[in-house]
Design a binder for these strands. Structure first.
Lengths: 202, 202
DNA sequence: GTCTATAAGGGGATAGAC
DNA sequence: GTCTATCCCCTTATAGAC
C-alpha cells in the first residue's frame, strides 16, 4: 500500500481481497484455502482475484510477506538500536509482542509453520535482511554482567514471550489456563520477563 | 499396532501406508498432501489406501493421534508421578524431549499448527485425558520453595525446551545458530534447564 | 474494472476384474 | 488383498461480453 488512507473511505477491491486472503490463509493455510472462499469473504467476483494478483500463489506471497514483517518489526529495529538499554529492549519487546499477539493469536504459529513447510518462500523474503545485530547485544550483555551467549539470550527471550501463544491450544485444552483467563495469564508473564531474564542469564 | 514385530519382517501394506502418510502429512500438512503421493511414497496401489483406511481423512486422524501421543507421552506420565522428584522430572523431560525432537524436528510445529487449525479433531483425541496433574506439581513446587504457579512452571519448562525447535527456521536463517550447530545448541541448553528453572521460579 | 461462462485438469473415491 | 479403469466433483484460471 503506497498511500495510507485516513478515515472512512471504503476499501478498494484490492484491499478487500488482501484482507480476506489474510484472514483465511492464516486460519487455514495455503492449500486448504480456496480462491472461491476468498472471493466470497471479500465480497468480490472470483475473476477479480486473478485480475489483481495474477494467481492464488502470488496473493499468498503478499500475505506471508505482510505477516512476517508484522512479526519481525516488533523486535528487529529495537534489538539493533545501541541507544536503547538492554532492560528497555526486553521490556518493550515483551510489551509489544504480548499486545500484538493478543490481537493476532494465529500469527506466530502461522509464520513458523509456513517457514518450516515452505522454506523457499522465506529465502526470498528475508534475503539481505540482517535480522539480529549480534555485536550490539553482545556488548550490552557484558555491560549487564550476563554471561549468556547471544543466541541463548534471544532464544530465552522469545521463548518466554511467544511460546504461550504457540502452545495455546495445549495450554487451554489441558485445563492449565482457562480460555477466558488467557489474556491475564500472558499479561502477568509479560511483567516478569525482565526479572526472569536477569536471573537466568547471570 | 497390536503386536510389535521383531527383527526384519517386511512392512505390511497397512504399515507402509501409515509410514508414508506420516511422513508426508507432517511435512506438508493435510490439504497439501495428495493421496496419490502417499500411494507412491508407500509404493502401493492407490485403491489400497481406501481399502485399508476408508478415506484420506481417517488415515490422517490415525497419523495425528500417533504423533500427538508421541509428543505427550514424554511428559504426562513423568509429571504425574509423585515418586519422581521435581529435579528428576525437569531433567528427564529436558533429556527426553531434546532427543525426541532432534530425531523428529517437525513434530511440535506440526502438532501445534494442526491443533490451532483443526481444533475439533483434537477434542476427540484428548477427551478424558487428564493431561497435567496439577496437585502433584503444586505440592512439589512448595517443597522446593518455588513460588511460581503451576501454569507458569509448565509454560516455562516447555518454552525453554521446545521453543528452539518450533522457531528453528527463524533461528537458523537469521544466522543466530548455524544449521550444523543446531544439535549442539539445543543439547547445551538442555543441560541448563534445571538451573534456569530454579532461578526463575524462586 | 467487473461480470458470466467455461475450459482444463486435479483429486478423492469406487466398481469390478483378477 | 491387489489391480486397472473410471467416475464425478471441485478448483484454478481465463476468454470475452459489458
Amino acid at each position: 500500500m503506497r498511500f495510507k488512507t485516513k478515515g472512512m473511505e471504503p476499501l478498494t477491491t484490492e484491499q478487500k481481497i488482501i484482507k480476506a486472503a489474510s484472514k483465511l490463509f492464516t486460519q487455514k493455510g495455503y492449500a486448504a484455502t480456496k480462491t472461491r472462499e476468498i472471493a466470497e469473504e471479500a465480497d468480490i467476483n472470483l475473476a477479480l482475484l486473478n485480475y489483481y494478483f495474477g494467481s492464488k500463489e502470488r496473493l499468498y506471497k503478499e500475505v506471508v510477506k505482510d505477516k512476517l514483517w508484522m512479526l519481525l518489526e516488533v523486535m528487529i529495529p529495537i534489538l539493533s538500536d545501541e541507544k536503547v538499554s538492554l532492560e528497555e529492549k526486553v521490556m518493550t519487546i515483551a510489551e509489544n509482542y504480548t499486545q500484538l499477539l493478543l490481537e493476532h493469536e494465529e500469527l506466530p504459529i502461522f509464520i513458523l509453520n509456513e517457514w518450516t513447510v515452505n522454506e523457499d518462500l522465506f529465502v526470498d523474503i528475508t534475503r539481505d535482511a540482517r535480522l539480529f545485530a549480534k555485536p550490539v547485544i553482545e556488548k550490552q550483555l557484558k555491560e549487564n554482567g550476563m554471561k549468556v551467549s547471544v543466541p541463548d539470550f534471544i532464544a530465552n527471550l522469545l521463548s518466554l514471550i511467544m511460546f504461550s501463544f504457540v502452545a495455546k491450544p495445549l495450554i487451554v485444552s489441558s485445563g492449565l489456563v482457562e480460555e477466558g483467563e488467557f489474556a491475564n495469564f500472558v499479561n502477568r508473564r509479560k511483567g516478569k520477563i525482565w526479572e526472569w531474564m536477569t536471573k537466568i542469564n547471570q
